[in-house]
Design a protein around this nucleic acid. Structure first.
Lengths: 325, 325
DNA sequence: CTGAAAGCGCTAACAC
DNA sequence: GTGTTAGCGCTTTCAG
């Protein structure tokens, strides 16, 4: 900026004003400065500007990883959520700083905030240790979390309506005449637990009780769909419907059912969750519960903006929708 | 930092030294300052530190979008590449700033660099306008691009070996006895053009000539796989093999073949490209060309680090690998 | 309308 | 060992 000032024969102050389109600078000095700046590919240094203005137009998006697995960022649902966050932030003139933290050390998620890198944090992905989030919130870290609402939660969350999703999925299978419906998912995860609750409610509405033999634990790793189906086979339990808590689980489950000689949907009807892009290309057509990714990104960003500006923000549940295929 | 200094009864300089683990500070003042800082959740403000040190440990990852479609960031291959970039950068203590630019305005990709936000740029995704990249490179923007090597390119690129990938895919189909092999892909894209070249070479090795009737244009949008298969049907052209330039195209192509009453792989054998996670769960099993995502992220970051540190960096091609399923 | 000067939070000579 | 001071690139009073 000093260079531009020298070349234009004015002071740094005038250059600053011209570049910020202040009205306190004459028409022709402004155009002269602007021309000079663009010819030199000069742009205001945001770091210095932030320092001076004590502002910050960057948001941190944090995705936890399992220290053990150290797997790639690979869940299609979270990946597409990330894309929608990028768009929602860009639209508001915010940058997105992506970082990954150990799922057990969630307090590390606040580092980019503590170091002044970002104005707030959006947390997406899977983890447990909810109490660490409360600790962060107590520290006044502006933060919005994707996921289920916990009973004692002191932070703002945005999530899908998992209970309703579970009901829709199970209700659809029941409506198709299925009566023995298996459930695949990790019910120690809050979101999955809510889907399981919806599952139980839908069964109860038909006067059916959930059979614990039909509930199989599974992580969000795709291959667990295969494990779960084999587990059901080992248990020797009879079933004609299957509700999988992600589309990836549903797909591997379907392939495994096929290798076990069971035809989908004739022998076992399957419903997945998320409605990832690939669900519509799968064969047989995969019926699923859509999570509104676009709206989710928007809502997460809108809530975070409120927190950053000191306005209150409510936790939110977005509607789940049954996609028939 | 001033607060900490006051509370510890020392100067800001001492606090700075203690926090940076300088040896010029006595053992017990250091521990006292460190304790104070952590109890207050205080961390050095990176923005101010960067300004003072004229350094920057952030890298910009830029993903172009089509202004028309304004689609979500959704290509599974680029998404997983993004994940591997996040890991590779994190491992080096760098942050990742994600931004999206209009594919027609690639010069905007340099904005985060011009504004001093990032030390360099990694560009992934699809675009045309290669000449804009040369312009950026001429401006000395440290930049590494994922993709094909162009003849007159003045920037550093890292990409897969597309010619070899095309040969492997086609060679596999030929080895399976297929002789009429369709090609689906947008050969105006440099990477796809190279795959097409590999396709032609593999055919030539068997004394076959490529039939233009068998080459169908398609974008990377998944549904184009369906369009392409219908196009082939309209042309009334006979084929028993199909090489699709992405797994998504292959999957929609397969589903469309099925609706047209053609069985895969009996009537038409199919090979895809990328080896995205879902390829292994697809039915029928999808044979594909693997792009080494992990190595790609590493290589992109390593090359960018070289450029940032003023070392030379060579453009690079990573080996393609045939995945049989 | 424009310039001089102070200061955002930090670090690195240079003193002591 | 520790403190003083100048300055990274910017904005913004306050004077002119």
């Amino acid at each position: 900026m000093a260079d531009i000032a020298r070349l234009a024969g004015v002071s740094k102050a005038t250059v600053s004003r011209a570049l910020n389109r202040s009205t306190l600078v004459s028409e022709d000095t402004r155009t002269r400065i602007l021309a000079l700046a663009s010819s030199l590919n000069y742009t205001i240094n945001i770091g210095a500007q932030n320092l001076r203005l004590k502002q910050n137009r960057t948001v941190g998006v944090v995705v936890p990883y399992d220290a053990g697995v150290r797997q790639e960022l690979s869940d299609p649902f979270f990946l597409s959520l990330l894309g929608s966050l990028a768009d929602a932030l860009n639209a508001r003139g915010f940058d997105l700083l992506l970082s990954r933290v150990d799922a057990e050390q969630l307090d590390a998620a606040a580092t980019p905030f503590d170091t002044g890198r970002v104005a707030g944090i959006i947390l997406i992905g899977q983890w447990r240790r909810h109490e660490q989030l409360n600790t962060l919130a107590a520290r006044q870290v502006p933060m919005v979390v994707w996921g289920a609402q916990a009973p004692q939660q002191r932070y703002v969350s945005v999530g899908g309506d998992n209970a309703s999703g579970g009901m829709l999925a199970t209700g659809h299978l029941l409506a198709a005449g299925r009566r023995r419906i298996a459930f695949i998912g990790d019910i120690t995860q809050a979101e999955v637990a809510q889907r399981y609750r919806g599952y139980c409610q839908a069964l109860a509405a038909q006067g059916l009780a959930p059979d614990p033999q039909l509930c199989v634990p599974a992580s969000f790793l795709a291959q667990d769909g295969a494990h779960a189906v084999r587990q059901l086979a080992r248990r020797g339990v009879v079933y004609d419907g299957l509700f999988a808590c992600s589309d990836l689980l549903a797909m591997t489950a379907i392939n495994t059912l096929r290798t076990l000689g069971r035809e989908v949907p004739r022998d076992v009807a399957v419903v997945g969750y998320d409605d990832i892009a690939l669900a519509s290309y799968f064969h047989p057509p995969l019926c699923t519960i859509r999570q509104p990714v676009r709206a989710a990104g928007e809502a997460l960003v809108a809530s975070l903006m409120a927190l950053i500006e000191g306005r209150p923000a409510e936790s939110l549940q977005l509607p789940a929708e049954l996609v028939l295929r």
